[in-house]
Nucleic acid binder design. Structure first.
Lengths: 96, 96
DNA sequence: AGCGATTTTACCGTAAAAGATAAGATTCCT
DNA sequence: AGGAATCTTATCTTTTACGGTAAAATCGCT
């Protein structure tokens, strides 16, 4: 973590989860039972304070019947790292 | 983990990462330098033996210049967030 | 077959995710 | 305002991701 773009990613994903949950009228407690993930853990994820594992995200998506892509929906590539300078960006440089 | 669908998810995601890496002609060692993730860790992820964190997947996607969705691409759910049967599917049951 | 590169596996530390529980803080009511 | 539900935060324990290193195993290659 520590990184700034990563914190934004976690915050974005968390916000999408919370929005989806709100649409479905579920409480954290209810989603906790559906996913098997504790309510405190879900809270941390939704508020971007935790870096969830892939299968954790899947359980959340499944419980709410949305695709993983719906929750991830990065768009990250539009955001920032879209294009690299001719030989810029981060290449392997001198490491060959 | 332990779950079967979860193992399949990890295997699928790992395979997609490996395919993407192959297309770009990168070795694990090279991808390790680009991502800051060790080659052994990448190997475990690609072979579906590890459940990576969200930011780990992001670093991998970024390094290969593909979207997170490209790597996740579950396809399991086509459903949009909106439709949740009034009292259908798996509900909270008796837990109220 | 043998060599070099790549990949896998194993072991050890550290850090962090996740469950449980409990205590605070919010928000939403009437 | 008060009370109830919901959400957040804290603490503790267990599990596991991740890096480093090194040793196997695998895959080209000529």
């Amino acid at each position: 973590m520590v990184d700034d773009a990563e914190k934004k990613l976690l915050a974005d994903v968390g916000r999408r989860i919370r929005e989806t949950r709100a649409v479905q009228g579920l409480s954290l407690e209810q989603l906790a039972r559906l996913t098997g993930i504790s309510a405190p853990a879900l809270s941390l994820i939704e508020t971007g304070k935790r870096d969830p594992r892939l299968t954790t995200l899947r359980r959340i998506a499944d419980a709410m019947r949305v695709s993983l892509a719906t929750i991830i929906a990065d768009g990250s590539h539009a955001a920032k790292a879209s294009d690299r300078a001719p030989s810029g960006g981060y290449d392997l440089g001198e490491y060959q």
